[in-house]
Simulated scan of single mutants.
Amino acid sequence: MPEVIFNGPAGRLEGRYQPAADKTAPIAMILHPHPQFGGTMNNPIIYNLFYMFQKRGFTALRFNFRSIGRSQGEFDHGVGELSDAASALDWVQSLHPESKSCWIAGYSFGAWIGMQLLMRRPEIEGFMSIAPQPNTYDFSFLAPCPSSGLIIHGSQDKVAPPDAVQGLVDKLHTQKGILITQKTIEGANHFFTGHEQTLLDECADYLDARMRGELVPDNVKKLAGR
């Protein structure tokens, strides 16, 4: 797993990168939790999601947002971090020009950044939003959400209360042309303490189903099958 340094909007960004053997393989980028509350690319959930995608033949990238680890710059309340994510995706795509699709997985703060990036990049065909915080961050930009994906959270999450997440899911369910899959892990808090494996298993099951052409609207399946 090579350590990489690449240019970002506020200086260098530090990442970990695993290229797929297949040049046309999809790209997966995994975004870590809040930089000011201990979030880094080495968060165990981020680390394990990285390998989950890598084991399924994706080119995988995780990186530290500005101000974390060897990444330069200062925390920018999400604005600069979104630019960091866009630059990171540009960088990995420049190495894999034959890859036509991408997935974004984000946890907590990273889920908010990932969903914003989703709106800007039509090549992102799937997402995993883990413990998003619609009670803290504005998700009104999802109008409409362009891709099907997974929203997964804990029933005992006090940072992102289940009713707030449910409101976001309900809003997305009204949109046509996408399919939002929601999973609630009973007993799990915002950090999935004691439920980490259940979280990873649910994410893996969802990704496997999507790779089989499931959990998307019928019109998407037909297009994929041409």
Rank of each mutant, 00 (worst) to 15 (best):
V79I: 14
P132D: 03
F63D: 00
Y47N: 14
G213Q: 07
G114S: 06
Q18S: 13
F191L: 07
M128Y: 11
Y206F: 15
F127G: 03
L89G: 00
K158P: 08
T193W: 11
A143T: 09
H173T: 09
L31C: 01
F6P: 00
N219W: 14
G225C: 14
T198S: 13
Q18M: 09
Q197M: 12
D163W: 13
T24D: 08
E196N: 05
Q18D: 04
G126Q: 08
W91E: 05
R62V: 09
P19D: 03
Q54E: 04
F192A: 07
G106W: 01
P26A: 12
A111M: 06
F75G: 12
S67W: 09
I130V: 09
E196F: 13
I27G: 03
M29I: 14
K183C: 09
G225H: 14
I178T: 10
I151M: 06
P134N: 04
A209P: 07
Q197P: 08
A131M: 02
T198L: 11
R210M: 05
C145F: 03
A131K: 04
I68T: 12
T198A: 14
L118P: 00
L49T: 09
I30Q: 01
L207D: 09
P44H: 07
E74C: 05
N7T: 15
S140I: 01
A86M: 13
D205T: 14
R16V: 15
F192V: 07
Q18Y: 08
H195M: 12
P122F: 04
G177S: 08
Q18W: 10
S140L: 01
A20M: 00
Q36L: 15
M41I: 04
T174M: 15
G15S: 03
F191V: 06
N7P: 13
D157T: 02
E74Q: 13
L95Y: 06
Q72D: 05
P2H: 14
A21S: 13
D22R: 11
V220P: 11
S101M: 10
A164P: 01
I152D: 03
A25M: 05
M29N: 07
N42H: 11
I180F: 12
